[in-house]
Design a protein around this nucleic acid. Structure first.
Lengths: 224, 224
DNA sequence: GACACAATTATTGTATGCAATATTTCTCTT
DNA sequence: AAGAGAAATATTGCATACAATAATTGTGTC
C-alpha cells in the first residue's frame, strides 16, 4: 500500500471513470454500489464524492443520490471560453516572465511537434501538444492560474479528445501554436494573449463542427 | 432543521471561522475537537474538511491532522496576481457583452459609491465596492470565471479587509473604478482590462505597504 | 381502470467502534 | 544531562450500525 490513502485513490479513479464516460452525465452514483464496486465501505466513497462535488464534476444534492454533472451546450461554451481566457492569460504572463531556458525548451517542443505532424504520428503529436500547453501554464509562474488551467483542461478533456480526428486539425493546430510560441519567445505579451485566445476559440469551433456532423449522422446510424 | 445538511453548514462555518482568523494559518484542525465544538460526530467533520481541502483553504495530509493553509508572501502575491487577471478578464468580457441595463446599473452603483465616499460612509462604500465587483463578474456572462473570481476574492478577503483603513485608499479606489466603469460602459474591452489590472495591482501594493508599516510598528507596540 | 394514499423498501446522513499510524512520554544508556 | 529507543497515548482512516428521509410498491376507492 503506497502513501496514498483510499479516498485519494477513489477520487482519482472515480474522476477518471467519469471523464472516460463509464458513468455518463446525469447518471446516479449510488454509494452502496460504488462501495461494492471498489471494495471499500461507504465512508471513503462519500468523502471522495464530496471532493469531486467541489470540483464540479458531480452534483451532490442533499438526501438524493449524487449525479454526474450534466453540461448543457451553454455551460460547455462557458467552460471553453473560460479556458481560453485562462490559457491566454498564462500565455501573456509567460511572454513576460519566462526564463530564457524556458523559452528555448518551449520552442524545442513546438518544433518537435511539427516533426510529429510531418511524420503523421498522432500519439506523439497529442503528447507534445499537452506538454506545450503545460509548459505555458508553468511559464506564467503562477501556481493559482496553472491549477485553474489544468483543472479546466481536465474537465474539458472528454470534449477535446474527438477534436484530433477532425480533418485538417493537426496542421492548423501547429500553425496556431506557431503564433503563440513565437509571440512568447519574443516577449510580445499582447500578441501571445491574442494568439492563444484565437487558438482555443478555434478548438471550440472545431468541436462544435464535430457535434454538428454527429447530430446529422446519428439518425442515419439509427436506421442501420 | 432547514434543508441544509450538517456538512454543508459545518463547511461554511469552518470556512468563515478560518477566514475570520479563529483558526490561524498553520494551526491543526483536530477532528475530535471540531466535532465537540460544533456538537456533531467526526464523520461530518471529516467530510467538511475534505471539502475545504479541495478549495485550498486547508491542507489535508494523510495520517496527520489537517492544518489551515499557510500562505507565504510569494503565494499571496500569486493569489493577488491571479485575482487581478481574472477580474481584468471579467472586466474585458463585461465591456463586450454587458446588456445596456447592466451598464446603466453599473454606472449607478459607481456613482452611489462616489456619494458614499463624499459622505464618509465607509460601510456603504465597502458594500457598494463589493457589489460593483460582483456586477462586473456577472457582466462577463460566464459562470465559470465568475465562480473563480468569487472564490479568489473570498480567499483574499482577510488580506483585503485592512486595506480600507489605509490613508487615501477610498478616493483613489473611486478614481480607479472610474476608469474601469467608464471603459466598460463605452465598450472599450482593452481599456477595461488594463484599468482593472491596474486597480487590483494597486490594491495589492497598498496591502504590501500596510504590511511594511505593521512590521515597523509591531516592535514598538511590544514595548508598550 | 386510474389515481391517491399509505405501508414498505431502499438510500442517504450521522454516530459509533475498531484498527492502523503518528505523536508523546518515559526510561535507559552513554 | 542529553539523546535514543520503546512503551503508552492520541488521532486519523475506515467499517459498521442506526436514524431519517426519499423512492417504490401495493392497496383501496372513485
Amino acid at each position: 500500500m503506497a502513501t496514498e490513502t483510499t479516498v485519494e485513490k477513489l477520487a482519482n479513479d472515480l474522476a477518471e471513470a467519469i471523464l472516460a464516460g463509464v458513468f455518463p452525465p446525469g447518471s446516479k452514483l449510488d454509494e452502496n454500489q460504488l462501495a461494492q464496486r471498489y471494495e471499500v465501505s461507504r465512508t471513503p466513497v462519500r468523502e471522495a464524492l464530496r471532493q469531486l462535488a467541489t470540483t464540479g464534476l458531480i452534483e451532490f444534492r442533499p438526501r438524493r443520490s449524487a449525479i454526474v454533472s450534466t453540461v448543457t451546450p451553454a455551460q460547455l461554451e462557458e467552460l471553453f471560453i473560460a479556458m481560453g481566457e485562462i490559457e491566454a492569460t498564462c500565455a501573456r504572463l509567460a511572454a513576460i516572465s519566462m526564463a530564457p531556458t524556458e523559452r528555448r525548451r518551449l520552442q524545442m517542443v513546438h518544433e518537435r511537434m511539427g516533426q510529429a505532424e510531418l511524420q503523421n504520428d498522432p500519439s506523439a503529436f497529442a503528447e507534445d501538444n499537452h506538454l506545450l500547453h503545460a509548459m505555458i501554464y508553468s511559464g506564467a509562474h503562477n501556481a493559482v492560474l496553472k491549477d485553474m488551467a489544468i483543472s479546466l483542461r481536465r474537465r474539458l478533456s472528454p470534449f477535446r479528445r474527438a477534436q484530433f480526428h477532425l480533418e485538417g486539425r493537426p496542421p492548423r493546430s501547429f500553425r496556431e501554436h506557431d503564433a503563440v510560441v513565437s509571440a512568447i519567445t519574443r516577449g510580445d505579451a499582447a500578441a501571445a494573449h491574442a494568439a492563444m485566445l484565437h487558438h482555443v476559440m478555434l478548438i471550440e469551433q472545431s468541436y462544435e463542427d464535430l457535434c454538428a456532423t454527429q447530430t446529422l449522422r446519428l439518425p442515419v446510424n439509427e436506421t442501420n
